[in-house]
């Protein structure tokens, strides 16, 4: 119970500080809107069926906007030293991991709540539907979870801006690929059995990455 309470206290602190500064949400949101506009204009010129490219475009926006937030969330905390104060607390460090990960996942979901209606407007496709929202949530959990671990690793290095995408994107490829396939399946209204393997991969990625991060976070945060 105390463990979950500590996780909740960290998430609440991250939400309060971010809602006051709005630095991360604003940068992620502005970036997402600009990229969606860019995609919308670019695809409008050449692509006859938007449904073939829209799932890939959606997950590209989520992946890169998420990376902006991930880098900022951890590095800002390390730069001002407050991460050390957090690590000094007598709590299991996996609680700190889950607190930070849930915070970034919440910010990503806030941005996604803006992104999905924009995709409906610009691509004229039914992105706002329960199944796609579930896929977005699952994809965000896995991506945000492993991203939090890798952002913590990268933040302690001099090349953190370069290192985070170099580490994160290759590892996140299975989740992104599965999320794109699932989104396309749901968008086309295909039978679930046709893309259930990809859905299973998405869930497996979430469980494996969160489990791995839970086990190794203690080693990652110490010099």
């Amino acid at each position: 119970m105390s463990y979950l309470r500590k996780v909740f206290i960290i998430v609440r602190k991250d939400l309060v500080t971010e809602l006051r500064s709005r630095e991360m949400i604003f940068s992620m949101g502005a970036f997402s809107v600009l990229v969606i506009l860019l995609f919308a204009f670019a695809f409008d010129l050449r692509v006859t069926k938007a449904g073939t490219v829209a799932p890939g475009a959606l997950w590209s926006v989520i992946a890169f906007a998420g990376m902006l937030g991930l880098g900022r969330s951890i590095s800002a905390e390390i730069d001002r030293g407050s991460f050390d104060a957090l690590l000094l607390a007598p709590v299991d460090r996996s609680a700190i991991f889950f607190g930070k990960a849930l915070g970034i996942i919440a910010f990503m979901m806030i941005v996604e709540a803006v992104i999905l209606p924009l995709f409906v407007i610009f691509f004229n496709l039914p992105f706002v539907q329960p199944l796609i929202i579930l896929i977005v949530v699952l994809g965000t959990v896995g991506y945000g979870g492993i991203g939090t671990l890798l952002a913590t690793m990268a933040a302690n290095t001099r090349l953190r801006e370069v290192l985070l995408p170099v580490l994160l994107l290759p590892i996140a490829i299975p989740a992104l690929l599965a999320a794109v396939k699932c989104t396309a399946g749901a968008l086309d209204g295909r039978d679930f059995a046709e893309w259930s393997n990809w859905f299973g991969l998405l869930i497996a990625f979430d469980l494996i990455m969160l489990g791995a991060a839970f086990l190794v976070y203690d080693f990652v945060v110490e010099d």
Binding site: V16, T17, S82, D84, L88, D92
Partner: peptide, 20 residues
């Protein structure tokens, strides 16, 4: 974990949250 209950750290950085 038990040792941390006995430790307080003051650094040249304040280790605080500026927006709180």
């Amino acid at each position: 974990d038990d040792a941390r209950r006995h430790i307080g750290l003051l650094s040249h950085l304040p280790l605080l949250y500026g927006d709180l």
